[in-house]
């Protein structure tokens, strides 16, 4: 008898673990689709000044992405290409393609709170973490992501607040190894695009630095649109800069 209970219990646990995996997978798919095109505005509040940038982003799966800056005019035409963990940048003003060396990858991206590394390692959330449901309330699920052993990630844990109606998160909190909060993402204004749901307002903020955050407004989102392979070649940097 007790054995049956035990088996049932294990089964339930497994189910819950599977459920967590399922939720994270869906969440990730929502963010990415097979491929995704976005036009977005990024606002950076920094020392009381707000700076705004607009860009177009094309990405396919987890390994390929192409970003073009379209605003402000002085930066118009700067392009970034990341392919398999490497990253290049083209600057029309100087007509040069520059490979970003590893040491620059972890620096803040264009003065925002997002690092180059965040952009390159998008896949990490599914591959490198073990999800666990810690609370369920109606459609709201709080999932804790603990890094898998030896996963090359710096966070001690990430806590996601997911709405299972849409499979989008409303808040991701990143913790360091000691369990102290380091930064958080806030997502709002979920929209349905095709078969996917996506929040169109994001906000990234360091937990212990006040008066400084990065906001992202998605102006256009298109999922699974055929994106030409031409975007994911080095020649694209220059070609699509104009």
């Amino acid at each position: 008898m007790s054995k049956i209970i035990l088996i049932a219990f294990v089964l339930i646990l497994n189910l819950r673990a599977d459920e967590a995996h399922e939720i994270i997978k869906k969440l990730d798919e929502n963010f990415r689709g097979k491929n995704i095109y976005m036009k977005l505005e990024m606002k950076i509040l920094f020392m009381g000044h707000e700076r705004s940038m607009k860009m177009q982003s094309y990405s396919q799966g987890t390994k390929k992405s192409f970003v073009k800056i379209i605003y402000p005019p002085k930066d118009d035409g700067i392009t970034f290409l990341s392919l398999d963990g490497e990253m290049w940048q083209y600057v029309p003003k100087i007509e040069r393609i520059i490979k970003i060396p590893p040491s620059m990858m972890l620096q803040k991206w264009m003065g925002s709170d997002i690092t180059n590394d965040d952009m390159v390692k998008q896949s990490s959330i599914v591959e490198d973490y073990e999800p666990k449901i810690i609370k369920k309330e109606g459609s709201l699920v709080i999932i804790e992501l603990l890094p898998k052993e030896n996963a090359p990630v710096v966070w001690g844990k990430i806590v996601l607040n997911i709405d299972t109606k849409t499979y989008t998160s409303s808040k991701d909190i990143f913790y360091d190894e000691e369990g102290k909060e380091v930064r958080y993402f806030i997502y709002e204004n979920v929209k349905k695009v095709g078969n996917y749901y996506i929040p169109t307002y994001w906000r990234v903020q360091s937990s212990d630095v006040e008066g400084r955050y990065t906001e992202i407004f998605l102006e256009e989102v298109e999922y699974d649109r055929e994106i030409s392979e031409e975007y994911f070649q080095k020649s694209a940097l220059k070609r699509f800069s104009k």
């Binding site: 963990g85 490497e86 990253m87 990858m105 390159v120 390692k121 996963a151 090359p152």
Partner: peptide
């Protein structure tokens, strides 16, 4: 191979 790689 020129790829950026990370290790924990």
């Amino acid at each position: 191979k020129g790829e950026i790689n990370s290790i924990a």
